[in-house]
């Protein structure tokens, strides 16, 4: 049997991606803002954390050597600020224009990291990331600590996003996504809500960034290539865009499946075939899920339909047999 430590690592990575996917769901699933800049926001949070906690001996121009417990929330706030700086101009755009703009901003952030080598060590990167409790638990056992941290982060993310999704704010957000004209007619300040959501997602991604670094243990610009964004998106689509549980489930299915495929043993001479097949199998998983569950493993209807029904029952109104509950109707409640 496989050493459980390996699967502890896999589940840790899955929990990290689950956090990112749930944060993405807030802005993209509910807010309708299709963001391809996840890697950029993750880079902003990660570098903020590393710079604030870096060893002054590394020769970086700014290395205050803060405690990780101080740097962690500051990283989240900083990423929120970066999200605001991106969102203010980008949210004037819609659909594919917004999508391309966020992708471009992510690349700009990565290039800034490369160019500002005095602060970030550029392409050289920074090793030896500070990790919590590593003076108490070392070696293989630390993997369990990291799993607990990542699982806690994912659990908090789930509770926070669930609260957002079922709040009046979340309902209005989905209403604006489904029918902006109606939301505006109801007096909702849609643009302001969108930028608030974008900043909120940035804060959530920034809060996840240190956990990702605890897993990787080093940072370099290469870490934040667009591939990470597409992995988060794939997880969310598999799990169910707009669903409260979608990001969580999708990330676990995707990461566990990917790592399980990687365990297929072949003769070294044929490793290139396996390497080519791996993404195909992941693609096949995506196709199968979308074929049989077009809304993902969990649909938005699963997440919010039952709540609406409960609310209606509680208020004594007759239950409706509507197909998909429109967010606009809920927002007007």
């Amino acid at each position: 049997m496989t050493n459980p430590i390996f699967w502890v690592g896999v589940l840790t990575l899955a929990a990290i991606y689950a956090s990112l996917a749930m944060a993405l769901n807030v802005e993209s699933g509910w807010g309708g803002m299709w963001d391809l800049g996840i890697a950029g926001l993750l880079a902003a949070g990660s570098y903020c954390y590393v710079i604030l906690t870096a060893d002054p001996d590394l020769g970086m121009r700014f290395a205050p050597g803060l405690s990780m417990w101080v740097a962690w929330p500051l990283s989240a706030l900083f990423t929120g600020l970066v999200a605001f700086a991106i969102g203010a101009p980008a949210l004037r755009l819609r659909r594919e224009y917004f999508l391309i703009t966020t992708l471009a901003f992510a690349e700009i952030i990565r290039q800034l990291v490369v160019i500002q080598a005095d602060f970030t060590r550029g392409t050289l990167g920074i090793p030896n990331i500070n990790r919590p409790f590593d003076s108490f638990v070392t070696g293989r056992d630390y993997n369990y600590v990291l799993l607990v941290i990542a699982a806690l982060a994912a659990a908090v993310m789930y509770l926070v996003t669930r609260q957002i999704g079922s709040s009046p704010f979340g309902r209005t957000l989905r209403a604006a996504r489904d029918n902006e004209a109606v939301a505006l007619a109801l007096g909702k300040r849609v643009n302001r809500m969108r930028i608030q959501t974008f900043v909120l997602a940035g804060i959530l991604i920034g809060a996840t960034a240190p956990v990702y670094l605890f897993y990787i243990r080093a940072i370099s610009p290469q870490l934040f290539a667009p591939g990470i964004t597409f992995t988060v998106w794939t997880a969310l689509v598999i799990g169910g865009l707009g669903s409260i549980r979608g990001g969580l489930a999708g990330a676990f299915v995707l990461i566990v499946f990917t790592e399980a495929v990687g365990l297929i043993e072949v003769d070294p001479a044929h490793i290139n075939i396996l390497v080519a097949i791996e993404p195909m199998l992941v693609g096949l998983l995506l196709v199968l899920v979308l074929r049989f569950r077009p809304d993902g493993l969990f649909s938005e209807r699963d997440s919010f339909g039952s709540r609406r029904t409960q609310a209606e029952r509680a208020s004594g109104r007759a239950a409706t047999a509507s197909s998909r509950p429109t967010a606009a109707a809920q927002a007007s409640d």
Binding site: Y215, Q222, L223, G262
Partner: peptide, 25 residues
């Protein structure tokens, strides 16, 4: 010889190293 592709990424190196050590020993 136990071969593992790291995808030329640090993340791939971390997960690949974990597989080499914890699965294949």
């Amino acid at each position: 010889l136990v071969v593992e592709d790291n995808g030329s990424t640090p993340e791939g190196a971390v997960s690949g190293f974990a597989e080499l050590t914890e699965v294949h020993g």
